[in-house]
């Protein structure tokens, strides 16, 4: 475990003997407390269900995702948290047989409306993937890829520098911008991917378990970066790591898997301020998961 103070209370580290009462990971808020009510929402998710090839995967999720904050989606494997994330920038469109029902608005605009161009949606809503996936090109070209794609060619050097600075990578790579992106370490590659995303000046960054393939030190660097990006960007992060959610997010949505007529369907159980979810969960299932009784 990374963080010593929390590792002691981590459910995975605690001796999980039956009968013993587990405790939730210690919660220490990192930000100024945000109001419980979502003020300005960047996404409004209304009764969204997702099915793959007719088999339901996610059932009737509704949530308002606030602007400028970090929202964490947590839950056991197969609970649909990644599916939810991929609905927000229409990445699910790329999967054969995926169908999304319900309504998702982005700043009030329905992103699944017929005349909406998914490429335009994805340009505004950046994404960082589980495994660092820089292109097989130079560091510079990786960051410049998006701006070039969308004709933002003026001051390209400045854009690249700004994005790399924004991703806290500039000092490490400024002397080797022509080196291959793959030559960087895993954590640097992931920050390169974040730089690549913010080079397009999105206002939302979606992160799909961005630190799960990284070592503890790199993970902390990514978390520090997320704190830095908070405010300027709205961040939605899927994570397996509950401590991570507790450390960095303002709000947490807990998803779980439900058996419905023999099919495993993901559903949103609880969505609240992270502090509330981790210390005073209103649903029994949330508390069980957070204290490590399942998942």
């Amino acid at each position: 475990m990374v963080d010593n103070t929390q590792a002691q209370a981590a459910p995975t580290a605690a001796p999980a003997q039956t009968g013993q009462t587990n405790t939730a990971p210690e919660f220490t808020p990192r930000h100024t407390t945000v109001p419980r009510e979502v003020g300005e929402a960047v996404f409004d998710v209304e009764t969204v269900s997702v099915a793959y090839g007719g088999a339901p995967a996610l059932k009737e999720v509704s949530m308002r995702i606030p602007k400028g904050e970090i929202t964490a989606l947590i839950g056991p494997s197969g609970c649909g948290k990644s599916t939810m994330l991929r609905c927000l920038n229409r990445m699910n469109d790329l999967i054969d047989g995926a169908s999304v029902s319900g309504r998702i608005t982005y700043h009030g605009e329905d992103i699944y409306a017929e005349d909406v161009d998914p490429a335009e949606v994805r340009r505004r809503i950046g994404m960082v993937f589980q495994k660092p996936n820089p292109f097989a090109m130079s560091i510079y070209d990786n960051v410049a890829f998006g701006p070039k794609l969308h004709g933002m060619k003026s001051n390209l050097d400045d854009r690249v520098e700004k994005a790399l600075r924004g991703a806290a990578l500039w000092d490490e790579v400024k002397d080797k911008l022509n080196d291959q992106g793959h030559a960087l370490s895993g954590g640097q590659q992931q920050r390169l991917c974040i730089a690549r995303a913010i080079a397009l000046e999105p206002d939302v960054i979606l992160m799909d378990e961005p630190a799960s393939a990284l070592d503890p030190i790199s993970t902390l660097a990514i978390e520090d970066l997320m704190r830095k990006l908070r405010g300027q960007y709205s961040i939605v992060i899927v994570t397996h790591n509950m401590q991570q959610a507790a450390r960095i997010s303002d709000r947490t949505a807990f998803f779980t898997v439900d058996m419905e007529q023999g099919v495993r369907v993901g559903e949103l159980v609880e969505y609240d301020l992270t502090e509330t979810v981790f210390t005073n969960a209103s649903d029994q299932r949330t508390e069980s998961y957070i204290t490590g009784r399942f998942g």
Binding site: N89, M91, A119, V121, F129, N133, F135, G146, L149, C193
Partner: peptide, 19 residues
């Protein structure tokens, strides 16, 4: 993941194929 990365940045099918 390379293909996803390009789509994730708003590339069109054509751009994904060529670039």
């Amino acid at each position: 993941d390379q293909v996803d990365a390009a789509y994730g940045m708003g590339a069109t099918d054509f751009e994904v194929m060529t670039k």
